[in-house]
Amino acid sequence: MLSRVADHLYWMSRYLERAEHTARLMDVHLVQLLEQVPGLDTEQRWKRLLRSLNVTQPDADLQDIERLTRCLTVDSSSATSIMSYVVVARENAQQVREQISSEMWMQLNQLYLGITRKERRTVWSAQPYEFFTSVKEGSHLFQGITDATMNHNEGWHFIQLGRFIERMVSLADLVDSFFAYSAFAGADDYFEWLALLKSATAFEAYCKIYHADLRPDWIAEFLLFNSEFPHSARFCVEMILASLNAISDATTLHRNSRLHRLAGRLRSTLSYDEIGEVLAGDFHAYLADLKRQSMDIHETLHETFVTYSIEAALA
């Protein structure tokens, strides 16, 4: 397939995943603010949210809920709003419309039309949850339609790579920020760990394994090392490796390439590390390393399939 097409499919998928992730975090965050649960104060919560989304503080006071929310949701002039993510995802899809199925395009287009047509002011004042739900459901529907209507070919695997690399990176940021702020919450931290799990759609899945007892070490273990939960780091790296193998079969890439070695090393880390040892060491550095390894995979993927030199290819 064309290098440019692979690139657009990858970014389409990454941006849509980012939109969904942002919608989920915002949703959990705003509920926490409304319920005024004990633990952190409002300002700390906003700081933690911005850190877990890895975005810089918008030009707004940390008490100005309405303005901050707008910057992260419907403000198309802000590059880190859900609106901008959906717009960029759709622009990427637009570039490769003949490669994706018409059903996929129609779903993404309807998601876009649905959120751009909404009266902007109403998002905060009236129905923020409807907005978040429409983004999350729109993204889920798109994934389902993608799996059901597109050939599971090379292009589909680039879509998978975009989704799971984005998920891995954002999970590392999410876990890092919640552990960093856990010290401020003091003893009454149940609601904070609950928020972390809900931010990763992990609460119910976690309870099925560990029961409703929320312990930070179990939560970290679940989110990083569980092999069955689709938002865990381990699950993401398995999917990344599977897609890399499929792409190797479809292209001329050798299975012993640098790309495979990078992904294989990350899988080993996530498969064999012990949560006790990891938490006893520098957990922040550990998560930063996971993120760096994911970014290495991203960069090598680009060099291998998209930006390779023509001289090398002709040789």
Binding site: M1, L2, S3, R4, A6, E154, I247, A250, T251, T252, F305, V306, Y308, I310, A313, L314
Partner: peptide, 13 residues
């Protein structure tokens, strides 16, 4: 290249 037209793909030219 050498009067032949190629497209740039994920499997090379």
């Amino acid at each position: 290249h050498d009067n032949v037209v190629y497209m740039r793909t994920t499997s090379g030219l």
